[in-house]
């Protein structure tokens, strides 16, 4: 089939076209830019979790910590040093990865909800520390950025930052989608269900898990950087502990079979909750109910639902085997 040959190109081309549409739609409209920033923040946190939870079955959820690290790295470099702000991105990523590896080593014998509980407690402790350590983090007042990221001497305005953020989310979803199909991704997904066999085949499973956690932490740190760059401030409660639950729900809502499900889920969450003072508002109620409903009625998420529908249409013409999840 010639369609199979086009497949590797289809993904970047179609998603790229949608990206351009999205960028055009957002334009310079302040409200739409806010929507975009929130979508990217949730989307990146969801993609981070995707790399080890959906693919590797490690329910490590300390995402408010990773995002805060990315955000505070930006804030601290901006206020405490004269360095270019771009330096803070690798700094934040390295710090988040380091924390995730240490946390991963401390919890390497745990799995499932035991792991979730400990990492959630870590999140709460980290949040408490952010407020406590006001000498470093500015305490409850947080950090107000005095300058923005500049590239080649020109400071980026909000318009550019929103575009960069959207491109970043697109790129990371695309890369994760590739990673998922690569032998590494296959081994990671196999580990989720048959850890013993993957280990016996010669794959160091602990290292595999730690790498997937690190990828997630790095992406989570970028989420915090995007949020902070766009808002020019970071507070302990900017990214609440409960954001991790959002990130857990998002792929179930959008669809677990692909990182694009996370992007779709993040769009929906933003759409459902943006106008309704998040985490306080009835948007969260709608969202929680939607998650329960999707889990019950469309276990493969919205992507699965769409695939089912198109499958039924195509199936009438051409009956094929079951696709891989």
């Amino acid at each position: 089939m010639s369609a199979t040959r086009l497949r590797p190109l289809a993904e970047p081309v179609i998603s790229g076209a949608l990206l351009i549409l999205a960028i055009t739609w957002v334009g310079t409209d302040g409200y739409r830019q806010d929507l975009a920033v929130l979508t990217v923040t949730y989307g990146l946190i969801g993609l981070g979790l995707y790399s080890h939870f959906i693919m590797g079955d490690s329910l490590s959820i300390a995402y408010n910590a990773y995002a805060a690290i990315g955000g505070y790295a930006l804030g601290l470099v901006a206020t405490r040093t004269g360095w270019p702000l771009l330096v803070s991105l690798p700094l934040g990523i390295v710090a988040a990865v380091l924390i995730s590896v240490l946390l991963g080593l401390a919890t390497r014998r745990l799995n499932g909800f035991y792991l979730a509980a400990v990492t959630l407690l870590f999140s709460e402790a980290f949040q408490a520390w952010l407020i406590d350590a006001d000498g470093v983090t500015g305490g409850a007042e947080g950090v107000i950025l005095t300058r923005s990221i500049s590239v080649f001497g020109a400071e980026l305005g909000r318009d550019q930052i929103v575009v960069i953020a959207l491109v970043l989310m697109w790129l990371i979803a695309l890369l994760l989608s590739r990673l998922r199909r690569s032998p590494f991704g296959v081994a990671l997904r196999a580990k989720a269900q048959a850890s013993v066999a993957v280990e016996a085949a010669g794959v160091p499973v602990t290292a595999l898990t730690l790498i997937s956690l690190s990828i997630g932490a790095a992406i989570g740190s970028l989420a915090g950087a995007v949020f902070t760059t766009a808002n020019l401030s970071i507070l302990p409660e900017s990214i609440p502990v409960s954001v991790a639950f959002l990130a857990v729900f998002i792929p179930f809502l959008g669809g677990r079979s692909s990182p694009w499900g996370v992007v779709i889920g993040a769009l929906l969450v933003t759409e459902l909750t943006f106008n309704l003072n998040f985490f306080q508002g009835s948007g969260t109620l709608l969202f929680a109910v939607a998650v329960v409903a999707v889990l019950i009625f469309a276990p493969e998420g919205l992507i699965g639902l769409a695939r089912d529908l198109t499958g039924r249409l195509v199936g009438a013409v051409n009956r094929g085997g079951r696709d891989e999840r």
Binding site: L176, L179, R181, S182, P183, F184, G185, I211, I215
Partner: peptide, 10 residues
């Protein structure tokens, strides 16, 4: 992992 991101291959 790095190779997988650049070119899934396999």
């Amino acid at each position: 992992a790095a190779r997988g991101v650049v070119a899934p291959g396999g």
